[in-house]
């Protein structure tokens, strides 16, 4: 019955890079179609600037508008909100799972909060924190909190009973049961919550920067839009997308590292 395992060597093949190539190809095709529609006057360049103009405006936006500094500022706000989200959201979900009363009392309104347009509360946050980065960070944090709490709760509550029983059969203490079984079992679901929370946080951070005309890329988009610099506006939006991509790549790396086997 003894068996031996063989690990196939990883080789370069077209099948491995095909999804990435298809993704990039689709994007390039989309931009080419937009360019073509604008150049043939089927789409107004006063509504959507040609992609070639957006690309051409990048050096100007980078040099004149200090986009890198603003990019770092928005990224910093996202990271701060993200760290707070993970600490408070995951702890909140764990506490709600541990204390039934807390779960019964709060789960419904936390879920309701997830669908509320919290960005409209920005005047309240301005009053509390003033016109500074903390208003932006706190708006992002509050908006991203519900999915992190709810998914943490779902992940821990949804741990397969047999795994809990394995822990019990080995006489684990409740702390060991949590750290060695419940938490690792819940990690994939918790990461779904963190991803959702970060999406909400990023949207709200850029949105509030735009609304209160303060801070990083959101403020830049606001200023460029008011100047009717459409190419510059879209170039700045590209940097927001870049923040988002970098953020999610980092989360993906962390998720892969923590849940190597799943």
């Amino acid at each position: 019955m003894s068996m031996t395992a063989t690990t196939p060597a990883r080789r370069f093949s077209l099948a491995n890079v095909l999804p990435a190539l298809t993704g990039i190809g689709t994007l390039v095709a989309f931009f080419l179609i937009v360019e073509l529609l604008i150049q043939t006057n089927m789409l107004s360049r006063f509504i959507v600037p040609p992609p070639s103009e957006i690309i051409a405006s990048f050096p100007r936006v980078i040099v004149e508008e200090h986009v890198l500094q603003r990019f770092v500022q928005t990224l910093g706000e996202c990271l701060t909100a993200g760290v707070m989200l993970i600490i408070v959201g995951v702890s909140g979900g764990v506490l709600m799972q541990r204390f039934r009363l807390l779960q019964q009392a709060c789960e419904t309104w936390v879920a309701a909060l997830a669908s509320a347009p919290l960005v409209l509360c920005y005047p309240l946050f301005l009053v509390i924190f003033g016109r500074n980065a903390w208003t932006i960070i706190m708006m992002g944090f509050v908006a991203g909190l519900p999915p992190v709490i709810l998914k943490t709760l779902e992940g821990i509550s949804g741990t397969r009973k047999v795994l809990v029983n394995v822990g019990r059969s080995f006489n684990l203490t409740s702390s060991q049961q949590f750290w060695k079984i419940l938490f690792p079992a819940a990690l994939p679901t918790i990461f779904v919550g963190i991803r959702l929370g970060l999406i909400f946080a990023l949207i709200n951070i850029v949105g509030v920067e735009f609304l209160i005309n303060f801070g990083g890329l959101g403020q830049l988009i606001n200023e460029l839009a008011e100047r009717y610099d459409l190419a510059g506006t879209y170039a700045a939006i590209c940097f927001v997308v870049l923040v988002s991509v970098m953020f999610f790549m980092a989360v993906e790396k962390a998720e892969k590292w923590l849940t190597r086997a799943e």
Partner: peptide, 29 residues
């Protein structure tokens, strides 16, 4: 009156820890 170190249990359902390698699963106790 509760789980006892003298008794080792193997369950009907699949009960390996998916986040641990085979060695780490076996080394758990």
């Amino acid at each position: 009156n509760g789980p006892h170190q003298s008794i080792g249990m193997v369950f009907q359902e699949e009960s390996t820890f998916p986040w641990r390698s085979v060695t780490d699963n076996v080394a758990f106790p």
